[in-house]
Design a protein around this nucleic acid. Structure first.
Length: 992
RNA sequence: GCUGAAGUGGUGGAAUUGGUAGACACGUUGGACUUAAAAUCCAAUGUCCAUUAGGACGUACGGGUUCAAGUCCCGUCUUCAGUACCA
């Protein structure tokens, strides 16, 4: 009986689906374990072999945990709102829901073929109304909350209103907009309803505000900071400009400190990689320092700066404003006006990206104005310079050449004073000085170190009223509105210009139908095209726009939510995905807690991972979740790269003698290709090879165009061309016939082959992409080798976290392994497993494997597990093992990795249940105990020969035995060793 | 520039605590089977010298510690990732 993988895999996939083998139970005595993959966006291109890598790893772990007796939750779903479906809709008019449905079906087919143990009964799709209903509900909760800095958590907005009513806002310690006006309880109570609403918006955790946003004209929408990479949009690489717009925002900055602390200071800190933690730390970007106010001489103006080094305040010798700083035009003197304007003009022409890239050039202009030092009262020149960014901090810095390298460089370049305020440090080295160095020339700070001086400086500044200790974060509030169609609608209508939440009882607010998916002619978002997009407050339903009267019927919000809205809480929806009334039942939430293992790409470090932590903490604060972090342990799988194949095209400028039938554009004109090794020779300038190639070229053309006399001239032209990797075999040989059929214009191609007649291609590792013809489809692999082979090979490629190239050529190794495994159980006459007593060797091989594989799974070292299985099967085959006592546990051991073949073998062995219900084999040390050790014997550290000795032999006896060995005497050649190192059970080393 | 990770045969990679470097595969070469091919099986395969026996060299490069270094320390180079005038 052959290993018929297609039949076996189809059979067991059907069995698992019909028996709901992997359905997680919500009520059981078993301990729980939650394994989650980052859910995919179902793109039209389908999956390539790189996508399932993380899913296979998590599936192995989930299956392993089931064998260990855990109640495992291992769900899957789709992040199905998003740009590509919308852009397809714009181009073709096809509704994004239709595109999404098609893509999801295709994804599901592909996923099913790989044999994952997903509990599909819990599938979620963020674009389904029964899902986004709850996304809308969470939005309403955020709107109805404020962040109390005293209790350090989010609270119901009602508690804030109560505070305002009794004592105004002066005693409230809340996270809110800057520049809030103070008011008393009386004043609050006297405000109109609209005024009160406007004030509350400044405190709500999601709020409507006119903010400067990143506007992407090409995409027609705003983008969040994490959606911009290197100054251009992450999707499409389009230009991004700053623009003021009224937008919904999320007050994530309220959680900056907790998001930072959560990374490593909580009791059981997150088991994430250091690199992801570091990326989040940098993104949050906490800096502790002081805000200092400088008065501008002869003007009724102040410059506010933020500094992390208030201790260096006496070292300030100038100030620098960003060229865009609003004060510049006010304070610039008449003499400097032209120079300043010219500078502003020239910097505005450079994009932010250019400015960031160019760190070397020092430029700036003096404004002619002076500011007053808060302590010395000396006049300090105020400059503008593009090394100060308007978008960070206050857009102004107090420059301390003695404390900051850029300030030093700037001062040096423009010949500004460089006072030294550090004791015993050369001024050119001062910027890199240690913080323990004592401060000098600084009045009351003299003799103190940086830390103490900083504290004192802040104290004195506060006394003067010209400064305050301040902690600043780089993390900005996140813009939550998108001018798109394919996203969650807001449960919001507008009354008298103020946003109103629709009562949660009336959710979901379903996405309306529109004629066109583009913005309206008046520049409104796509929802502006909807004819039925108004809210009736009497019937509580969406009604036609003509009914808007602004008394009972109001217009609805036209923006939709961003891509990260739905993905910020989906991990909790899986716990109770069919719940209509609430996002998940409290009991289920408490039972499943948080995700025990999360697997996905590290590219989400600043977006999804931060936003989900934020929402989790918020829901926790408001009592909806008992956990405070969503993901306990996280593994980031590396990217699988493609191994591109290249053919080498060559040509010469050709000359035709006389009229003839020759033509460069003739259909008969072939393409010429040369094999890799000869191409390399030509590149190196091998004259003989060039001549041979040239004469081949001439000869071939003269045969094709017999009525012309053709000769090659000029230089040879060489061009490597991508060729589909499917046309290349394991030995890098091109399928020439396949190649000719691949493209019509290669049909007549001519080849200079290797001497054995094959055409070898070149190889290069690149990102997998359609345009490079190096994409490998998992379906084809499953069809040809089986899903178990695919799973094993993806793991065998290398460490999970590492980026590594895919090369289909190597897959025969693991495929042959599975065939060998099969043969261990089954031969032409059927099952060959017997009840024979296992030998010592059999048991040793098995238990060695159990030990190694268990350790490997715990360490996520799946590549070495596969090697271990290979060694195990090689050994058992050599031992001619047929003992059920060995082969039965081996099937269970294999089950997480190659579940289909494991199920089949398990069934062949006579079991009637699924192998997934079997307990994982237990390692027994006693089978590995040895009585002797084959010692490597080294001389001066160099291994010369092996010597088998009993393990219980003492050092003295070992030394005697070694010295007595004739090989030792030969090595020593009459010398006496100075020293004999013996590590029992390990090594023998003779020195001298 | 800064931060982090890494650099091992022709290729992917192993070596978990300093203790036989190159496991396990791919590829290559030779052989068996076959009319032939495929499939399968067997053997060899780090480089160099040597008919063999054997020897020298060898984990990016240069030093060091140690009986013993891919592993630890110092310096240099390269690659990848993240980040970037963050005040």
């Amino acid at each position: 009986m052959q290993y018929n993988f297609n039949e076996i895999e189809a059979k067991w996939q059907k069995y698992w689906a019909e028996n709901q083998t992997f359905k997680a139970s919500n009520s059981t005595d078993k301990p729980k374990y939650y394994v989650l993959d980052m859910f995919p966006y179902p793109s039209g291109a389908g999956l390539h072999v790189g996508h399932p890598l993380g899913y296979i790893a998590s599936d192995i772990y989930a299956r392993y945990k089931r064998h260990q007796g855990f109640n495992v939750l291992h769900p899957q779903g789709y992040d199905s709102f998003g740009l590509p479906a919308e852009q397809y809709a714009i181009q073709t008019g096809q509704h994004p829901a239709v595109t999404t449905e098609t893509n999801v079906t295709r994804y599901r087919e592909q996923l099913d073929k790989i044999g994952f143990s997903f509990d599909w009964a819990r599938e979620v799709r963020t674009s389904n109304a029964d899902y986004y209903k709850h996304t809308q509900w969470i939005f309403i909760q955020l709107y109805n909350s404020w962040y109390n800095n005293d209790s350090k958590k989010a609270e119901d907005i009602a508690t804030l209103i109560a505070l305002f009513e009794t004592s105004g806002n002066t005693t409230v310690n809340a996270v809110c907009d800057e520049d809030i006006q103070s008011f008393t309880a009386e004043a609050w109570n006297a405000f109109s309803d609209k005024e009160q609403q406007q004030i509350l918006l400044q405190y709500r955790l999601t709020f409507l505000a006119e903010t400067e946003v990143n506007w992407c004209p090409a995409l027609g929408t705003v983008l969040a900071n994490d959606e911009i990479v290197n100054g251009v949009s992450e999707r499409g690489g389009h230009e991004v400009v700053r623009k003021k717009m009224t937008q919904w925002s999320m007050r994530i900055s309220a959680y900056a400190e907790r998001l930072l602390n959560g990374i490593d200071y909580n009791q059981d800190s997150l088991d994430w990689t250091d690199s992801i933690k570091e990326i989040q730390r940098n993104w949050i970007g906490k800096s502790v320092g002081a805000s200092v106010t400088f008065n501008v001489n002869d003007h009724d103006a102040t410059i506010e700066v933020f500094t992390t080094r208030p201790d260096t305040i006496f070292g300030v010798s100038f100030m620098t404003l960003a060229p865009e700083h609003e004060l510049v035009s006010q304070i610039v003197t008449n003499e400097q006006k032209d120079a300043v304007n010219a500078y502003i003009e020239s910097t505005s022409k450079r994009s932010e990206r250019e400015r960031m890239a160019d760190v070397k050039t020092i430029s700036g202009v003096f404004t002619g104005a002076y500011a007053e030092h808060p302590f010395t009262k000396e006049s300090i020149p105020v400059w503008i310079g593009d090394y100060v960014l308007a978008s960070y901090g206050t857009g102004a810095v107090m420059a301390v050449p003695c404390g900051d390298q850029r300030d030093y460089d700037f001062a040096k370049h423009f010949d500004i004073a460089i006072p030294n305020i550090l004791e015993g440090v050369d001024i050119s080295e001062a910027a890199n000085a240690d913080k323990s160095v004592k401060i000098a020339n600084s009045d009351f700070l003299n003799g103190l170190n940086a830390k103490k001086a900083g504290k004192l400086a802040i104290y004195k500044l506060e006394e003067l009223g010209q400064g305050i200790g301040k902690t600043q974060y780089r993390l900005r509030d996140a813009v939550f509105s998108r001018q798109r169609y394919w996203g969650e609608p807001f449960p919001v209508y507008y009354k008298d210009g103020m946003p109103q939440m629709i009562d949660a009882a009336h959710l979901p607010i379903k996405l309306p139908e529109v004629e066109k998916y583009l913005p309206t002619e008046t520049g409104e978002p796509p929802l502006g095209n909807a004819t039925d997009w108004a809210w009736c407050t009497t019937t509580n339903e969406v009604v036609s726009n003509d009914k808007i009267n602004n008394e009972t019927v109001f217009s609805l919000e036209l923006n939709t939510m961003p891509g990260w809205a739905g993905s910020s809480w989906y991990m909790f929806r899986y716990m109770d995905s069919q719940n209509e009334g609430e996002f998940a039942n409290k009991e289920m939430l408490d039972y499943w807690g948080n995700v025990d293992l999360y697997i996905g790409g590290s590219e989400h470090a600043t977006g999804h991972l931060l936003y989900s932590r934020f929402w989790t903490k918020f829901l926790h604060d408001r009592g909806f979740l008992s956990v405070d972090e969503p993901f306990k342990k996280m593994i980031n799988q590396g990217m699988i790269l493609g191994t591109s194949a290249f053919v080498y095209e060559f040509s010469w400028m050709t000359q035709s003698n006389g009229e003839g039938d020759f033509g460069m554009n003739s259909d008969k004109m072939p393409s010429f290709f040369i094999t890799k090794s000869k191409y390399d020779k030509i590149v190196k300038g091998d004259v003989e090879e060039i001549e041979k190639t040239k004469s081949f070229y001439e000869k071939t053309l003269n045969e094709i165009f017999p009525n012309s006399e053709i000769s090659a001239c000029e230089e040879i032209q060489l061009a490597p061309k991508h060729v589909d990797v499917a046309l290349v075999n394991a030995s890098d040989e091109l399928d020439i016939d396949g190649f000719k059929n691949w493209r019509a214009y290669y049909a007549n191609a001519k080849f200079i082959t290797e001497d054995d007649g094959t055409l070898k291609v070149g190889r290069e590792v690149e990102k997998m992409s359609k345009s490079k013809y190096n994409v490998v489809n998992p379906d084809e692999i499953c069809e040809r080798y089986g899903a178990d082979t695919l799973r094993l090979y993806e793991m065998f490629l290398g460490p999970l976290e590492q980026a590594k190239p895919w090369n289909t050529a190597g897959i025969t190794g693991v495929h042959n392994f599975l065939k060998k495994l099969w043969k261990l159980y089954v031969d032409d006459n059927g099952l060959k497993v017997t009840d024979a007593e296992p030998t010592k060797e059999n048991l040793k091989t098995l238990h060695k494997t159990i030990k190694k594989v268990s350790e490997d799974i715990e360490n996520f070292s799946f590549n070495t597990s596969v090697s271990t299985f290979m060694i195990c099967v090689n050994e058992l085959t050599a031992q001619k093992c047929s003992a059920k006592e060995i082969l039965e546990p081996l099937a269970v051991l294999m089950a997480p990795y190659a579940p289909h073949i494991a199920e089949e073998l398990w069934a062949q062995l006579g079991s009637t249940n699924s192998v997934s219900e079997a307990a994982f084999p237990i390692f027994d040390e006693k089978h590995l105990v040895e009585s002797s050790k084959n010692y490597p014997v080294s001389f001066n550290g160099k291994m010369r020969f092996m010597l088998e000795l009993p393990l219980d032999m003492g050092k003295d006896d070992i030394e005697k035995t070694v010295m007595a060995d004739e090989r030792t005497q030969k090595q020593l050649d009459g010398r006496t060793p100075k020293k004999v190192i013996i590590v029992p059970g390990k090594i023998i080393n003779l020195v001298g």
